[in-house]
Design a protein around this nucleic acid. Structure first.
Lengths: 230, 230
DNA sequence: ATAATAATTTAGGTATGGCTAAATTTTATT
DNA sequence: AATAAAATTTAGCCATACCTAAATTATTAT
């Protein structure tokens, strides 16, 4: 497979993220995510669909999905990104709200050799500093067991696995409340009208809106049934 | 100063290297170094000379030199490159013949923040793994005291400071003979016709041609005069 | 000094990957 | 079903940075 341009790598990565839920990625959504105009997106996806091994599946007015080829390429970029984030945090003391931007540029230029060296150096981590799963070296995405905090209800508890956010301000805010991967969390109240959740983390009580609870992913503790063990 | 394209950064870096000796860089030499056609170089240097703060000084058919602006930009890239080489060798176990290519791509995308973090982490090294001087944070190139091995004659001795070579094969060869920065070296014979030097390094004798002795830079020991101290 | 050669520049072309404005579809509303 | 609104595509432009071929200028040799 030939070397893809940085631009194409970016398209594929963002298409991957938009299609993770199984839906196809719309021109507009892609344009918004890439911060370019929709018309430019149309041009590029036509090119990606026409490529010799097609990288995307595309029919006019129906959005795009990745082909197997395209997905491989996307996972390669995502693997680079997440390994880099982990590595920058571990070895250069970046905080989790600073790494994204740096990794965003480095992900396109590091060699496979570099990728392997940092993966080895870190002992092949499963997740990046935000808790996002890192695609394996053979480019398969591990299965995510965690579910959105938004789907939990009072009495349920678990451990934060992943925080899907990039905005530095938000990340700083979350860290300030102890809402980081590894933290244990317990839902205390649910407000059905605004979908706010009152939760306990780090021995403190916080009320979180849907905007936030949708971005925090939890591995849920088994419900305590009548006190017989398992 | 606005952000320069990768292409422009590369031009400036190579112009810097070609003009270190004080001469101007010819279109042809630049083209050879950049591995592009001379016609393309002409176009670009015209653009660089016409830039709002001019980056190069250029008169038709007379080659280019850097302006103060251009030199700053070149030194920034070179600082990135050399810090990265040192960093990759120190933390990821790259060997000195492997780092160049990787640094070549990374140098254009790392942030100033990244630059500072690795410089701090390494304690602000003076030289990279080849012994090349690293421009300071305020973009001044330290003065090189070392002189080419080619200019030494029998009885002279010194320490290798720098090996100006990028070709991996050559670098491996040199390392195999102990011709690395820090090694002590003593000239034993000089052959005036082919300019070969017979030298002693690491307790072994090697004969080196001008191609090599021009690339190894030595900090010379003071001559042993009659045995009175200094 | 002239001719041959080498170096450099000009002219015109290509591929990438953006943009705007206008045309077309699709979707939603009445 | 007709129309309004939104999404998408087409068409035509622009900048970057490379290329080839031809023209020009410099340099070198006779």
């Amino acid at each position: 497979m030939k070397q893809l341009t940085i631009s194409i790598q970016d398209y594929l990565k963002h298409i991957y993220e938009l299609t993770e839920n199984g839906e196809s990625a719309s021109t507009n959504a892609l344009a918004a995510k890439l911060k370019i105009k929709p018309a430019s997106v149309t041009g590029m996806i036509q090119k990606l669909a026409a490529a010799k091994p097609a990288l995307v599946e595309y029919k006019k007015h129906q959005g795009v999905t990745l082909t197997a080829e395209g997905r491989k390429a996307a996972l390669e970029v995502i693997r680079h990104h997440r390994l880099l984030e982990a590595w920058l945090v571990q070895t250069l003391g970046y905080s989790w709200d600073e790494v994204h931007e740096e990794a965003e540029r480095l992900e396109h230029v590091i060699s496979e050799d570099f990728e392997q060296r940092i993966a080895d150096a870190m002992g092949h981590p499963l997740r990046d500093p935000h808790g996002e799963l890192i695609p394996t070296a053979d480019l398969k995405m591990p299965l995510e067991e965690a579910i959105p905090l938004a789907s939990l209800r009072p009495k349920q508890s678990g451990t934060i696995q992943c925080v899907k956010a990039a905005d530095p301000k938000l990340l700083q805010y979350l860290k300030g409340h102890g809402l980081v991967p590894g933290a244990r969390i317990e839902v205390q109240e649910y407000s059905p009208f605004d979908h706010n959740l009152t939760v306990k983390v780090a021995n403190k009580i916080v009320v979180l809106g849907l905007n936030i609870t949708n971005k925090i992913f939890i591995e849920v503790n088994p419900p305590k049934t009548s006190k017989k063990g398992r």
